[in-house]
Design a protein around this nucleic acid. Structure first.
Lengths: 364, 364
DNA sequence: TGACCTTCTGATACCGGTGTCATTATCATT
DNA sequence: AATGATAATGACACCGGTATCAGAAGGTCA
């Protein structure tokens, strides 16, 4: 009965809206203003904002109408204070590839669009002894809602333990299964690397080298072991002297490639652990007066924007980094809403064949 | 007399520190805890935190000692609520060059390091009609401490007016003088472009083209007019049919270069308005089967990381983007502290000659 | 010594929300 | 119509800081 529209109720609503309209230009409305105009307590308004089921539909409609009329949005600072938790989402990274990070940022921003959450950047230096302390200080001060941890930060179990202690949500992005489906985005790097191996083998290469990422990155291991698996499937092996370790950076890729070029047996194809190192490899090949792909084929990993800008365009293993960022943000929001996905969100990389790979040169 | 150290005072301090130490592991301290232990009111503690001169030295030392002992830091959310102003610094950008933005981010993060301020990212789309509304909503909700406005957002006077109305500090980064020294970082793009012109003229080029940035960017104008000035000084002119407008993006640079290559009179040198477009130009030149720099010399602008990763390495006009970001952050902090610089902070670009430019080809 | 002026300090309200818990409507039952 | 159970609401304290303003402490001067 009570919830049927009655002229009585409509009059009440009209009255309130009139009052709201009059209030409108006074400045920004607060929960108190809404409560006063709706003639309810601020707690009831708070309930409406938070979608509590404990509000009579009639009341809810009235309050919502006034909120809409005044364009009211709750103050994030006040909420943060009361909830002991802010609306910041931190992206913590120690990633040597800037391209990777930008793309991830974009994805996270996509996922956070039209929410109250703000993305804040927390670059760290894992090799710095007090990186840990600084991050803990940040967390305890700013009480971020959650953190997004791309590789390799995602692999730091101590860090994660600290987050749990401090009751901060997080999402880990990694190439191995490290956590529950609610807290994890998985990439199948090994599979992508195996595809790269198959591609090079299909082109007839046998002297195949690998520029490996740093030992401290799980992804570097995954990519290498997947690559080895792919080679094995095709009856090839990865010769130990054709593996050069580098640091996922351009410069280290350049140096690693130089070592390979001047090795006893020069490879005809190289798989670099990421695009950044592949770009360095390009330069080393050019400096040596060799041609890509005629003399040496190169394959990268990630498919960051630079891959398509190089010449010849880089054949690489595409990881949908931006989409991963978006998924990570959404996963964080889902945690907030209490929704636990049943399965790990995972992304499978796929090789993108461009122009940096070709048949093995004759005479080899 | 009162301020001389007395055994009495030392005893008081020791007592308080003992109590503080005992408190230590109870959790995170608040201003109330400090006040209780120091036996002063919270307002006095607040005064000490805010460096108010109205506190007796003796009291100040006592309170500071306890703060240090407990590692207390004021809660940013509570402060934000009381001050009606948060500790967020927003980077608002609508910049087609991701490299530019990353570098700027880094600089800002450098400048904000070890402060309470957090960098939040606000990418916008200036051509989107409601970009303005979204930004206003952000500002009114999150009450950022200040915003950093790189080109081209910095040129939007309406936006700036809105910021003033809402009492938000800001720093504008632009190639023209748009504001007071306290709110402005200036780059002398025209001078950099003139250097590019002189460089190309010195190499003997006469058929010189320009890939211009979008009309909506002041920097595009500055760079073009500076370039024209440089050419004029050397007795050359910029032929209208050798100007191609593009959008500061890789793809648009590619298309613009293609137009130039297939123009009636093919240029022997091209000055691109930024590195992103220069990268596109590289690809167009390669696709046409031409060589850099033997057939065509290319100069970029910005010196983003990609410049050194291209082959041949790109000759470009270096803008210290990261340093500019740091300076912008520091300027914002200076505004907070009430320090007004007397002169505009400005940065002069400088040409970096690499391998993409050479003597004009024989026969031209 | 008392009047008066500074310099310090603290009680209290406030910023704009949320949590707790008691109280009031509302409804189904008997 | 009275009863009890459940749904809906509000009073009040609280989150951790800052602002206001009155009052206390200390110093100067006649």
């Amino acid at each position: 009965m009570t919830d049927l529209p009655t002229s009585d109720q409509e009059a009440e609503l009209a009255d309130a809206l009139r009052e709201a309209a009059a209030f409108r230009l006074t400045g920004r409305a607060t929960i108190n203003d809404i409560a006063r105009i709706a003639k309810v307590s601020k707690k009831t308004v708070s309930r409406v904002i938070n979608e509590s089921p404990l509000v009579k539909p009639r009341t809810r409609h009235l309050v919502k109408a006034i909120i809409a009329e005044l364009g009211f949005t709750p103050d994030p600072q006040a909420r943060a204070l009361a909830l002991r938790r802010s609306f910041l989402v931190g992206l913590v990274y120690d990633n040597p590839s800037p391209q990777y990070v930008v793309n991830m940022q974009r994805g996270i921003l996509d996922g956070l669009e039209d929410t109250d959450f703000q993305l804040v950047l927390r670059p760290v230096n894992r090799s710095d002894a007090n990186y840990w302390d600084r991050l803990r200080t940040f967390i305890q001060q700013h009480k971020p809602f959650g953190l997004i941890l791309p590789p390799s930060v995602s692999e730091d179990e101590e860090l994660v333990a600290m987050l749990r202690e401090n009751d901060v949500d997080y999402v880990r992005i990694a190439s191995v299964e490290l956590d529950t489906p609610a807290r994890m985005i998985r990439t199948h790097d090994a599979e992508g690397a195996a595809q790269a191996a198959r591609h090079l083998c299909a082109l007839g290469h046998t002297d195949i080298a690998h520029i490996q990422g740093p030992e401290t990155f799980r992804s570097a291991h995954e990519r290498r072991s997947g690559f080895v698996r792919g080679l094995t499937e095709s009856g090839r092996t990865l010769a130990p002297d054709l593996v050069a370790e580098a640091g996922y950076t351009f410069e280290s890729g350049l140096l690693a490639m130089e070592r390979l070029i001047y090795a006893k047996r020069r490879p005809t194809a190289v798989f670099a652990g990421n695009d950044e190192m592949a770009t360095g490899a390009y330069l080393a090949v050019r400096k040596a007066g060799l041609r890509i792909p005629e003399d040496i084929s190169i394959v990268g990993f990630d498919d960051t924007p630079i891959a398509g800008r190089l010449w010849p365009a880089l054949t690489t293993v595409r990881l949908p980094i931006r989409e991963m960022g978006r998924a990570a943000a959404q996963l964080l929001l889902a945690q907030a809403a209490g929704n636990e996905p049943a399965e790990i969100t995972s992304f499978s990389p796929e090789i993108v064949v461009r122009e940096s790979t070709a048949q093995v040169p004759r005479g080899n």
